[in-house]
Amino acid sequence: MQPFIQFEAVSKSFGAHTVIDSLDLTIQQGEFLSLLGPSGSGKTTILMMLAGFERPTRGTITLEGTRIDQLPPHRREMGVVFQNYALFPHMTVAENVAFPLEMKKLPRAEIATKVERALDMVRLGQLKNRRPSQLSGGQQQRVALTRALVFEPRVILMDEPLGALDKQLREHMQLEIRELHKRLGLTIVFVTHDQSEALTMSDRIAVFNGGRIEQIDSPFVIYDTPRTRFVAQFIGETNLIEADVVNVQGGRATIALSDDLVAQVDAAPELAKGQKAWFSLRPERMRLGADPAGDNALTMTIADCIYHGDHMRVQLAQGQFTFTARCERLAGDWKVGAPVVVSFDPRDCTVLAP
């Protein structure tokens, strides 16, 4: 199947500084793809090249097999939503939404119908005569989204559109955008540095680091099976420790986390006896006070307990070695300084060759 959008060997440099380096990326029609990474990793530059606000230094960008990297933005049929909304303060909500249709010189009656339908779709019809300054942050965000949707673009591009909202409203808008994506079958390319946001909304996530894709996969694979140390550290929270591979046999590896702590893990194909490896274990995968007869049962000391409302963070130590475990609030009566057995399944951790 031909990719809907395709980047082929795309690079972007600003003077001597290369921001994107030989990027190959395909996006399918109807997909919600998040570009995730720290500041300066190149994700916004990719969005700007796709929108037409920046041109690649090298390489090609195609839409349904047709090159678009030389086309101006208005000929690409893409809606763009920015973090600052970019609404016209002197226009009403309805006038803001109508603006791209007026630029296309559609008949007034058709514009009015499309604007009314689009505002009703995001439950803003009753606010159509207000100006942006009279709206809340969430309402302004919905107006910006509606303006991007109203001319029925082939692709919606979003550059951290929820970054200015408070936590509760941001989570509400994540679900609204996700629902619109499913209902309308939109193709969405979404830039964010928020791991939780990407995991919540995306069909696939491309994790960027230094202008390159470290991993591109479904949220489940990205979280449960990171392929690199960077992805393991960047996505969510993990205990990441450099370990020595003691033995590899029958798909199972024995690794030494320290002189006194040895663990059994599922072996990656590239693991070999005698090499160094990175051991990654999510805090929620650890069980405290569990049956010590399992594959991995490490005796440690509780160094601290931190209350988080719906769960507890338990800091564990043995000598210089530390772990963080996440436990249900009522899972046990953990006392600082007490010994505890920490257990986990070999399948619950990831071991990465360096």
Rank of each mutant, 00 (worst) to 15 (best):
E95K: 00
D24M: 08
S41T: 08
L25K: 01
V231R: 02
S41K: 08
P100V: 00
Q174C: 01
T92G: 09
I205F: 01
A290Q: 12
G15V: 03
H90F: 11
I306V: 15
D333C: 05
G37W: 12
I302F: 12
P292W: 06
L186Q: 13
Y223Q: 06
P226W: 03
M201G: 04
V231G: 05
M91F: 09
G37H: 11
D224L: 05
V10T: 01
M49Y: 13
K105S: 03
D69A: 03
S280R: 00
V336W: 01
I156D: 03
R229E: 01
E116S: 13
S202D: 07
G337F: 03
T322W: 06
L63N: 12
R131I: 03
K273A: 14
A317L: 07
D120W: 07
G163V: 00
A256L: 08
T350Y: 05
Y307C: 00
L162G: 04
Q141W: 02
I306H: 15
E95L: 04
Q28G: 14
R313C: 08
K128M: 13
G37F: 09
S280G: 08
P89V: 10
T66L: 13
Q140V: 06
V122P: 09
S13R: 14
K12R: 13
V19Y: 07
V245P: 04
G59H: 05
V19K: 02
R154N: 15
R178D: 11
S196W: 04
W334M: 11
K105I: 05
G185C: 09
G65A: 06
D194N: 14
E160F: 01
V342P: 02
L25Q: 05
I306E: 15
Q2W: 04
F279M: 04
R212K: 15
A272Q: 09
G309Q: 10
I213A: 13
R142G: 13
E116H: 10
I5A: 05
C305F: 06
G40I: 05
L298R: 02
A263N: 07
Q70H: 13
L106T: 10
E179C: 04
P72A: 09
I302G: 11
V19E: 11
P219R: 08
F82W: 07
I61T: 12
V245W: 06
D345I: 02
G319N: 04
V341F: 04
A277H: 01
T62R: 15
V189M: 13
N209H: 14
G337I: 11
E102M: 14
A272H: 06
A331T: 00
F88N: 05
Q215E: 12
S133Q: 14
R130Y: 13
M103W: 07
A268E: 12
P56W: 03
S218Y: 12
V189W: 09
I302S: 14
P107R: 11
L124V: 10
P72L: 10
E237L: 10
R75S: 14
D217E: 11
C349R: 07
R147H: 03
P346A: 08
G79M: 03
F88G: 07
L145A: 10
P346K: 05
V231W: 00
D348G: 14
I222Q: 09
Q195G: 06
R252L: 00
V115P: 10
H17I: 12
R227G: 11
R58L: 12
A109D: 15
R204I: 08
M121W: 10
H308G: 08
L352W: 00
T44P: 07
F344G: 03
A9C: 02
R326V: 02
V191A: 02
T45S: 15
V265K: 03
D120L: 05
L157D: 08
